[in-house]
Structure formats: C-alpha cells, structure tokens
Amino acid sequence: MRPISNLDIEEQTTETLLYDLATGWSKPFPNWDSDNTLVVVFAAHEYCHLPQPLDALRNAFPQSKIIGCSTPVVVCDGALLPDTISVGIIRFHHTQLRLSYAPVPSFEESRVAGQMLGQQLAAANLKGVLIFSDGVTTEATELVQGLQEMLPPNVTIAGGLASGHSLDDTWMLCDGELKRFHACAVGFMGNAVELTRATGGGWRLIGAECKATRTSGRTLFELDGERAKDVYHRQVGRDIGFGLRESSSRYPLTVRLPGLEMQIVRDVNSVDEDSGAIELAGDIPEGVMVQVMTTTEDDILDGVDEAIDRMRSKTILPQNNALAICVSCAGRRAVLLEKTCEEAALAHDGLGHGIHQIGMYAFGEISTTSSGPPQVHNETITIGLIREY
C-alpha cells in the first residue's frame, strides 16, 4: 500500500487504524515513522498466531515506539469490535519518548519489574507514563509501586492489564515484538506534552462498612472478625432484586485506603466455601474498611459520564490531535452484556469525535488518583488523554 505523504496531512498528528481478516487494514499507514512517534496496539488474542498484520505494522514504523497487548475485544473510535486489531498513532514534534519493558514471570517478581521500568524511564523532564502488563502473571499493585519508587511523585501514570482466558492467549507488544509474561511502558518527556487521566465507576454501596481484620495479598479471610464469606453472602443477600446465584461481578468490594479520598474497587474472583476466604482481583491491605457494592447496566454506563466529567475538570478537551486510551474492566462486560457496545460509543461521544480513541477490556485499570499515588482499579473505565501543545 502507498504511504500517505506528509504533505497530505501536515497538520494532523493522531490517527487510528483497524485490521480484520476479511478486509485487511482500514487505510494506508501514515508516513509518520520517527523516534518520537507512539503506536499503541490492542489486538484480539488470535493474532499471536497470525503475525502478518503485526509484522506489517512493525515494518511501517521501525523507529517508532510500539506498545500494546491482547484483549478479547477492541475499541476504535466508538466501535466495539471482536477479532480485530485497533491501532492508535500519535506523532510528537516537541516531545521525547522513552520505551522500556521488563519480564514479569510471577506475582512475586512484579515489584522488581516495576523498578526496572522506572529505572529505564526516569528523567528530570518526565511528565507521564503509559503502562501495560500481563494480567495473568502480574501483581499490579506491586508493579505500580515498584515503578513509582523510581519516579518523581508528580508523574501521571495510566494504563491497564492485558486480559485473556489463559496464559496461552495473553501477550504483550514490547517495542513491536510479541512477548509473554512482560510489562511495557512508554514515558513522555518535555514541557509540550499532556497525559490526563480520569476514571468512572457506576456502582452503589450496599450493606454495612466492615473492617478487613485478616488478609494476605489478594485473599480476604475475615471481616470484623468473622469469616469473610459469611459477611459477604449476608450483605449480598440483603440486596433486593439480586440473588446469590448472580455473577460475583455484580458484587465487588470497595476498599477505603488510609489517606485517600477515592475508594478502590476490587473484583471478587472466587469464594472458598470451606475456608470462608474470598479471593480478590487485587491486593487488600489488612485493617482497611470494606463495603459491598452493586450496579445495573444503566448505572455502569453512567460511569462513563462520570469519567468524562472528571476529564473535563482536569483539562479543556481539545477538538482534535489528541489520542484517548480507554481501558475498561473485563468485569463491566459481564454486567453490560449486549450493552457493552454502548460504553465505547458513550466515551467517544463524550470526548468529541475529533479525538481519536482506542481501547481494550482489561483485568485491571491503572491510574494516578486525584488524591494520591497511582492505584490499580477494578470495575472502572479509565481514560488517558494524550496530546501535545
């Protein structure tokens, strides 16, 4: 295919492309390859076995920074698409990019991986970091804490965890190369770049607030001295209109961390009927206050408006030449079902159709909070908006 000339698109700095097996690439690749061009890729799992389109992308952008990961479905400019590759490209003129990646073979090595990323990205003029990691082998809280230890406290961090059905269909793109059990990140350096992030939920609290009196990592053993399962089932059972047979994605926990105004959501992965322990999708420190939440399809969609409103409170939304990275929790799909396509469309409408948008469904969302350091969230939609002044 013939590349588009720079003269044809002199003022344009962002672009989105799609690939599917039936029609190939949606448009020619822009002739934007440079050290300061970022290419973000979200792809359906099967493209690890169909390397041709990813090879073509890498060949078209040999100098650019290419990062991304697998996901069950992708988002592109308001559309939700299965079996597809979604690509967002942003070309910078006055911003330097630095790419880093590190292996994350297990939960126990996540903090070291984060520290390795931070060491590679650290710079006096670093303004923001976009990060993705394997959602199966990564303990995301440890990864993010390790990353932040190496960086100034005012650096904005956003990203998410690749989702998949198993180790075999979860993978990363690190500098354009397909890798498993890795984390990858790109740093934005200079005074002309902005990385703005915002999150939205759409959940309501039910039941009484309890104290997590015994925990270990992701496992919640006791609430207020009782078996966690007993308290959890008792509170869920009080929610009129839902039964215990409903998916646990309807009933995540909110965790109030000390010193943070914002509460962090944790999905319930499993409940051990024998021990009474609850396994969560992220860490839960001992001693924090916990409360059960629930939602409806419409409330989840209201969470998109919440994220857009928060974005507007942080920046004046540009009309064009910005790239939005939308990372939504895989658990939200379990609630929305056939309405999942409405979430991507609402985000695109709220940001404005002049802003290019790509996205994925993740095993966890990473975002700097309004009142503290970056956190790993579940059951939210997180939007990162990247642009150059």
Rank of each mutant, 00 (worst) to 15 (best):
M116C: 09
L117W: 01
L117V: 04
G118M: 00
G118N: 05
G118L: 02
Q119V: 13
Q120G: 02
A122E: 06
A122T: 04
A123P: 01
A123L: 01
A124E: 14
N125Q: 13
L126T: 08
L126P: 04
G128F: 06
G128L: 01
L130G: 05
L130C: 09
F132V: 14
G135L: 10
G135F: 09
E139N: 15
A140I: 06
A140S: 15
A140L: 05
T141H: 13
T141Q: 14
L143P: 09
V144M: 04
G146S: 07
G146A: 02
L147M: 10
L147S: 08
L147Q: 09
Q148D: 02
M150E: 15
M150A: 15
M150T: 06
M150V: 07
L151C: 09
L151D: 11
P152H: 11
P152W: 01
P152F: 02
P152L: 07
P152N: 10
N154A: 12
N154I: 01
N154Q: 10
T156I: 15
A158S: 13
G159Q: 07
S163Q: 04
S163E: 02
S163C: 07
G164N: 03
G164F: 02
S166D: 08
S166I: 02
L167Y: 08
L167N: 09
D168P: 00
D168W: 02
D168R: 08
D169A: 03
W171T: 03
L173E: 03
C174Y: 04
D175L: 04
E177C: 05
E177L: 12
K179F: 06
F181R: 15
C184L: 06
V186R: 01
V186S: 03
V186M: 01
G187Q: 09
G187F: 08
A192T: 11
A192H: 14
V193C: 11
V193P: 06
T196P: 00
T196M: 06
T196G: 00
T196Q: 12
R197K: 13
R197I: 15
A198L: 09
T199F: 08
G200K: 09
G200C: 07
G200L: 05
G201V: 03
R204E: 11
L205I: 13
G207P: 12
E209N: 03
K211M: 14
T213P: 07
T213E: 10
T213W: 07
R214L: 15
T215D: 10
T215L: 10
T215M: 10
S216R: 14
G217Q: 12
G217Y: 06
G217T: 12
T219K: 10
T219N: 10
L220F: 06
L220T: 06
